[in-house]
Design a protein around this nucleic acid. Structure first.
Lengths: 146, 146
DNA sequence: CTATGTGCAAATCCTTTGCAATCCA
DNA sequence: TGGATTGCAAAGGATTTGCACATAG
């Protein structure tokens, strides 16, 4: 954890950005909620607990910054707001996918990457140079089905 | 085409909705642009050519209506606006996927459905009852790569 | 005639931006 | 000190909503 924070600091510093205390607070919130998919406003509310004087704009600006540095990773589940998750490719290894329950809205993760052969096929057959992919699976979770 | 319009009319009528002339214009635009992924405003602009007195709100309301009836199908490519495509499951058979070029923004479609085994595995291993999925593949198209 | 559909403008929601003040190297 | 960072409030863009009028059946 301290490690991660140092890594991030170094990463930012390598391009003349600072890991200010605001940014560190935001980073901590994201770290402490690795498993969740927080919206900007949720991050804001959590950050305010420890640092009541942060502004929402700063949260947005910092989230964008972290995305640019591939420290976090933004996604969209179609509920009208962007959501963020700690870990870009550098921190997380390869992407995982999301199962979204249509009833209760819970979001589960599938760690395994089963799409490599697909990527290869797309590459070969369509001449499309795959960089990344995003898979969302909608359905009913164990508790909601039936 | 006439067929489709009649189908839609019947579908709407079965639940006490009407296929008014405004709605038909909107439907036609979507039909004539099967291959595109129009935003609400793009639909609006195209509809205005034939029916200058339609309001943007009506377009939004109609798109929502059509989505509810699974006549069209909304999606999000992360550019801040929802996009629509003719054909829900009823009209199109199974879903296709999208290849999004990171440079020129072109969106290609992959018709084949290579995810069935994945669905099955998710179902079996995680007790998740899959209804639908959405796959976006980002990369560089033939023209932009290299 | 009555419920549904519609245009318009205002309202909402999330996000971005301008700007003056603040902070850090 | 000087450029980066920030809070605040205002602006922005997409979408939704309230309401009075128009329309279809």
């Amino acid at each position: 954890m301290k490690n991660v924070i140092n890594d991030v600091e170094e990463k930012l510093r390598s391009k003349e950005y600072k890991l200010t205390s605001r940014r560190e607070h935001i980073l901590r919130v994201l770290l402490e909620n690795k498993d969740k998919h927080l919206s900007a406003e949720e991050v804001y509310n959590l950050v305010k607990v420890k640092a009541p004087d942060v502004g929402l704009a700063t949260v947005y600006r910092t989230l964008e910054l972290f995305c640019d540095f591939d420290i976090i990773h933004g996604m969209d589940f179609g509920d009208g707001r962007k959501r963020y998750e700690f870990g870009g490719d550098d921190f997380m290894g390869h992407h995982h996918h999301h199962l979204i329950c249509l009833k209760c809205g819970v979001i589960l993760e599938v760690a395994e990457d089963l799409l490599e052969d697909l990527e290869e096929r797309v590459n070969r057959d369509l001449g499309f140079d795959v960089q990344n992919h995003q898979l969302k699976i909608f359905g009913y979770c164990r508790n909601c089905k039936g």
